[in-house]
């Protein structure tokens, strides 16, 4: 495991994206899924929401931010990995929110992007603090399950397994799955539907 994949602590400035149930169609509108690579998606993150000109992604104060602070059920909707890919390519390295949609959370983990959750009150505090002082540094400490910012710190949650993967740098799911070839072959051969239902 090379050390560049270790995600113990993410340090960066914050960008608050307020609102519940921000879905993947808003994160990256479907028309930008007509592409065979992920390369240019960063340019189109939140494109339709940004049309109003008031989106934090267009606010110069948040340029270069790496920690996206969201509310409840962030990333709901489709399974498109294009959503975290677009945010990652825009510059996001970690997410702090009240809650995440499950597929979005999993997609982030496979990209080495930590998603941690906190109480609504702590999220409100962090969003307000970042809005008041966008220059401040935020630390998402995955290992210690804490977020630190100008006004102090609060506890965050992340499931044990995912935390372990990120902290050890072992989040590349394919890497973990590849070395069980014999077990996979044996299990597959023993499944009733691969064997004309002759085994049970």
């Amino acid at each position: 495991m090379d050390s560049s994949s270790v995600r113990k602590q993410i340090v960066g400035r914050g960008v608050p994206v307020r609102g519940a149930d921000i879905d993947t169609d808003r994160i990256i509108p479907a028309r930008y899924l007509r592409t065979v690579t992920f390369e240019n998606l960063g340019d189109h993150a939140f494109e339709d929401d940004r049309a109003g000109g008031e989106h934090p992604f267009d606010d110069r104060r948040y340029e270069g931010s790496g920690v996206l602070v969201a509310n409840a059920n962030f990333g709901c909707g489709s399974s498109r990995e294009h959503a975290p890919q677009a945010l990652m390519r825009w510059g996001v390295n970690a997410f702090v929110a009240e809650s995440f949609a499950e597929i979005f959370f999993g997609n982030c983990t496979t990209l080495g992007l930590p998603c941690v959750t906190a109480t609504a009150a702590d999220i409100q505090r962090l969003q307000a603090a970042v809005e008041a002082d966008p220059e401040q540094e935020i630390t998402v400490d995955v290992e210690a399950r804490v977020v630190r910012f100008s006004e102090g710190e609060f506890e965050v949650s992340i499931p044990n397994g995912v935390r372990e993967q990120l902290v050890s740098g072992n989040w590349d799911s394919l890497g973990q799955l590849l070395d069980a070839e014999e077990d996979v072959a044996a299990l597959a051969a023993g499944l009733p539907y691969t064997a004309s239902f002759a085994v049970s």
């Binding site: 992920f38 489709s78 399974s79 498109r80 990995e81 294009h82 975290p84 597929i103 999993g106 997609n107 496979t110 990209l111 499931p159 397994g161 799911s173 394919l174 973990q176 799955l177 590849l178 069980a180 996979v184 597959a188």
Partner: peptide, 20 residues
């Protein structure tokens, strides 16, 4: 399961998923 593209890669390569 609905899955993301990296997981599509995982299933193509190994016919397996890492799931909670």
């Amino acid at each position: 399961f609905g899955i993301g593209t990296s997981q599509v890669r995982d299933v193509l390569a190994t016919q397996c998923l890492a799931m909670d």
